[in-house]
Amino acid sequence: MKRPWYSFLYVRSPLVKIGLGIAAVMLSIAVLLFLGVIEDRRMAAQTANWDGRAIEKGAEIYTNNCYTCHGPDGKGLPGVAPALHSKYFFTQRLKDVGWTGSLHDYIASTVAAGRPSKVKSQWAQMMPTWSQRFGGPLRDDQINNVTAFVLNWEKDALLQGTPDNPDPWQPFDDAPSKAVAEDGSAPVAETPVESTGPRSPQELFAGANGMGCSGCHNLDLPQTADSRGPVGPNMANLYETAGTRVPGEDAATYIHNSIVAPNAYVSEGYMAGIMPQNFAERMTEEEINALVQWLLDPNRQR
């Protein structure tokens, strides 16, 4: 019979075949042993990988949903929403509210179920319910991701209060802080920043030591029927509309009154009591007037 030209490749001897089989088994065992030796490190790397990816996903969710109130760096906006990227939050908050679970659980359940009460709260807005279980947009895995993202501030937040990182101690008002300093005395209250003359309107509106207006009021979008601010009215066209709101009040008076007595006139479609009512105490008259002028300036500088 004809043999093909490549027939020399055929392995015919059974002993050679068995030898090849044994060699293949040894090779497999060698590879598996190698994998077994590095398996612990592989699992550790995979664990770190998926934790890292959860933080990445959480960062996306935070950027899309949370940063308007809690600030782009998580340090909160005064009067709007608390700082999460703070030493107080990571070290004292659970003790103050008497939470016995972990910080992860506290954050995850707050994100999921919101903060339905405003009792003794210094924040303008209530934390909404974010979980799909309670009518929000986020799935459970997304809540875990955003929690992982918030927890990832821990390393940085614990360094606060050192000379390199002078962020202040930022307790919330809703639970009296039980924090005790190392010598047994009550903690040093948040020292108000020494005022060095009147603060600029820009700083008041959006700055770190400002009033946190930018958390609810958008300066870039106009307030129209199609473009309503979700919490407070948008302000791009404020100079046109301010004078038309309350009969008998010109634009400057209307804005001034809206700042010092927000509930005196509430724009249609918004709730009374959202906007903090203590701005008259927190700003000087001079600062309020400058802020009013700045808000009414059509070419306002940021």
Binding site: K17, I18, L20, G21, A24, V25, L27, S28, V31
Partner: peptide, 16 residues
């Protein structure tokens, strides 16, 4: 023997 060797060799290849 032929089939067993072939399959064992193939398994080793898959593992690698």
């Amino acid at each position: 023997i032929d089939e067993a060797t072939f399959l064992i060799g193939f398994t080793a290849l898959m593992v690698v």
